[in-house]
């Protein structure tokens, strides 16, 4: 294992920002290479935890001589934010994952992104551990955006239950996944958990999926159990349940729960009078992939996203008919 600074940026007063990388495997290996990027945001604690856990796991596997490719793990990109409970770059509040591919002569966070991206270019595979960009929490899933260079086949080797495969939004052109794909790394994100916390189940699942991927792609010479056959989802297969009122939100289900049509999945109460404002019923049979994670909810907020069995069947049947 080689531990090194990818970025070391002096600060006016605090200690320098260091983005550390942990490199495994022989330098001249013929095996494939992969880079895994952890917390880009100061509230991506699950992501930090998975990445640092991988570093320790791979250190042991390297001692056992099990590494057949080359692996770079970057547990924390934004240590400055992590160390002060901020989400973004603490001075100008810019989001590091909105600065790609970076610009070496630009603003501070563009320079950080540029140096980081310089290090990440050229890897065969790229995994971005992502938290959510909203107040939600979700089952671990793969987010693969369509850049024209994405690789849907390889993500199936993670053996994760759901792959969200969809066109990219304009803002995503400034994010790592999109740019990494344009540079011909097979890059994808694993999105999971609730920001600012550690969920042992979710993080275990993601760890296992990554190890499985490393094994199946001949980066790790180590046998693993099979995972799920992935369900490929897109926005048309997901039903959204919104809060019709604002107030205190009590969820009655967990992410990943299979639910029936008409089942009570959540309740909203008036935050002052305590009166029940809304009983939220599941509009379909399916699996809760994602839900609102803050106890106070806003009117029209998305309370649940449900992968609908019926919608998936309809779409797939239509495809087969064609």
């Amino acid at each position: 294992m080689k531990r090194f600074d990818i970025v070391c940026l002096e600060s006016p007063n605090r200690s320098p920002l260091r983005i550390e990388g942990f490199l495994f495997g022989e330098e001249n290996t013929k095996g494939p290479s992969i880079a895994i990027v952890g917390a880009m945001s100061g509230d991506h604690i699950n992501q930090l935890y998975v990445a640092s856990g991988l570093v320790e796991y791979l250190r042991i596997k390297e001692e056992e001589g099990k590494i057949s490719g080359r692996i770079l793990v970057i547990p924390a990109v934004n240590a400055y934010a992590l160390n002060m409970g901020e989400k973004n770059w603490p001075l100008d509040k810019t989001d590091l994952n909105m600065m790609f591919p970076g610009y070496a002569q630009g603003e501070t966070t563009q320079r950080i992104a540029s140096r980081l991206f310089g290090e990440l270019k050229g890897y065969d595979y790229g995994i971005i551990l992502e938290g959510r960009r909203d107040q939600g929490m979700c089952i671990p899933y793969v987010k693969l955006i369509q850049s024209g260079y994405e690789d849907l086949e390889c993500v199936k080797d993670l053996g994760m239950g759901f792959v969200h495969y969809r066109p990219h939004e304009p803002v995503e052109t400034a994010m790592l996944q999109y740019n990494w794909q344009l540079w011909e790394t097979k890059a994808f994100s694993i999105v999971f958990g609730k920001n600012g916390s550690i969920d042992q189940n979710d993080t275990d699942q993601v760890h296992t999926a990554i190890v499985r991927f490393l094994s199946k792609r001949d980066i790790l010479d180590f046998h693993v159990f099979e995972g799920h056959k992935s369900n490929i989802l897109d926005p048309n297969r997901i039903i959204i349940v919104k809060a019709s009122r604002a107030g205190i939100f009590i969820s009655k289900v967990r992410c990943g729960t299979a639910i029936k049509k008409g089942e009570v999945i959540g309740v909203i109460m008036d935050a002052l009078s305590g009166k029940k404002l809304e009983k939220m019923l599941s509009p379909c049979e399916g699996i809760v992939t994602c839900q609102y994670a803050h106890p106070l909810i806003f009117q029209n907020s998305i309370a649940f996203r449900i992968a609908s069995v019926e919608l998936c069947c309809q779409i797939d049947t239509k495809r087969e008919e064609k």
């Binding site: 630009g106 501070t108 966070t109």
Partner: peptide
Amino acid sequence: PIVYEGSL
């Protein structure tokens, strides 16, 4: 006034 490398 506080700047990092790169600050505009």
